[in-house]
Nucleic acid binder design. Structure first.
Lengths: 99, 99
DNA sequence: ATTTTGTATTAATGTATATACATATGATAT
DNA sequence: ATATCATATGTATATACATTAATACAAAAT
């Protein structure tokens, strides 16, 4: 994805990434990956108590939008945060607790 | 809104506020209010070149989710950021430019 | 080559969100 | 009281998202 964006493109892109993050399960995934660095789909599906297909689906969305990266490790896929700073977004939300 | 939230509630709430922010026009509004502190609906509708009803609609969404506050000032409504830290969310997104 | 384990995709349905336009409400001035 | 300016709401249509369940694909082990 190109780095030079005009105003409208920048807004659209920023909105679409934020929209990807703005889902309870996906926030939970991001928080898990803050603690654990790299996790497989099944680890996430177990830790969060959601079906495997659901975990994979939401991981796919986060990866598509560039929030996560993934690579194969044997029969597992390992997912991790592309930019650890993304965690700060959730921290800010927590801090604005009266929101 | 209560401050004590269990895990699921916290995730849901965080997601719903982020979802409110995750829209190009609403991000533009937040950025405007970073520069200007207090703005009326018509100032926003002029500065952003969108219809009055559109501006009011999106301001309403941001207010509902607690991102903005508003008060009447004569025949105008003035909107401002409830928590200026919200701006940092957009700054983080900008910084993760490769996303 | 078949089975097992881990992951991704598809299709179907329901729900939510966006957009555009028209109209209503509220405050002020005349 | 009514006209005007500023803001909000309602309705309709289109689009996008979420959710579930079933199924396909990929790698490894037997």
């Amino acid at each position: 994805m190109l780095d030079i964006k005009n105003g409208v493109q920048k807004l659209d892109h920023c909105a679409s990434v934020l929209k990807a993050i703005a889902h309870p399960l996906r926030i939970a995934i991001i928080e898990l990956l803050e603690e654990h660095e790299k996790l497989s789909v099944s680890e996430i599906h177990e830790k969060l108590g959601v079906e495997q297909a659901v975990a994979s689906h939401h991981l796919g969305i986060l990866k598509n939008k560039g929030v996560l990266i993934s690579y194969r490790d044997g029969k597992n896929m390992r997912y991790e945060l592309k930019h650890r700073q993304i965690i700060q977004i959730i921290e800010i939300m927590d801090r604005c607790s009266s929101i």
